[in-house]
Design a binder for these strands. Structure first.
Lengths: 141, 141
DNA sequence: GTACGTGCAAAGGTTTTGCATGGCG
DNA sequence: CGCCATGCAAAACCTTTGCACGTAC
């Protein structure tokens, strides 16, 4: 499994923050290095284990926590009772169906304008955002 | 504890859907009947127990699930590993601090415009939305 | 009176922690 | 070679389920 990995960028960020690059971390990084993934811890374990079979569940939790602290990942809640992790940067725009749970991503977003307003008004330094609409999809209507 | 409760509206919705009005449900309804609350199941249990001490934890879970099915509540994830329940209607706009976890609500929101675009584009029937910005608050900078 | 709702306790999952071993730098 | 990171197993949590009893309608 050796693409010239785009994961490289993430590896740099770990290194710069003073963390060691281990096979366990590499496996997790490769799995979550997709702007459109939204995996829960068990998904990550399962997929990363294919890259590094010795990987343990606790390590996945520890790595996900680390990546969240570094601002690389963000946990979101999609209705079931486990968190799902998505890339923290930029924006995520979801259309969630209340009936079948399907999630559609869309691009349009006007959050950029608001970002500046909010930074000024509340003194917040804003790094990313999540915009979700809830309703019923075409098929479920 | 007997205001002329605004909770009345919620009670109606339960009745209409064919559910019995019990003290346990009333207590939970009163606790979550606040557009700005974002409580996790334990919070709800704790607060509702003050209104109805016999209340059990399982009943809180069952009631929260029921209210979610009826479209009255919606679970969201705010970083810890428990869901928090908010009123499902309309929009929720949060400014979340990555460091201290503080949540500020704001009013401005341009999601209304997008709603129509998305309904047309994806055939979705949209009922509500959640817009969250993540960053660091004034105090944590 | 009947069916639905409840509280309790046990079961089922998920997440966290402790600790001896292993491996990155 | 020194620490940090890991895997395993156990502990701690949170959530769900089964069941006999209570109660809204």
């Amino acid at each position: 499994m050796s693409t010239t990995i785009p994961t490289q960028q993430l590896v740099e960020r770990l290194k710069c923050a003073g963390y060691k690059i281990t096979p366990a971390r590499l496996a997790v990084l490769q799995v979550i290095d997709d702007d459109h993934a939204h995996l829960n811890p068990s998904d990550v374990l399962e997929q990363a284990k294919q890259l590094y079979p010795k990987l343990g569940r606790a390590t996945v939790y520890r790595t996900l926590e680390l990546l969240t602290e570094l601002g690389i990942l963000r946990p979101i809640y999609m209705g079931e009772n486990t968190p799902r992790f998505i890339r923290a940067e930029g924006g995520h725009h979801h259309l969630v169906c209340n009936d079948c749970g399907d999630v559609i991503e869309f691009d349009e977003c006007m959050a950029g304008d608001l970002t500046k307003v909010l930074q000024d008004q509340f003194g917040f330094e804003i790094g990313s955002h999540l915009l979700e609409f809830y309703g019923r999809c075409r098929d479920c209507r």
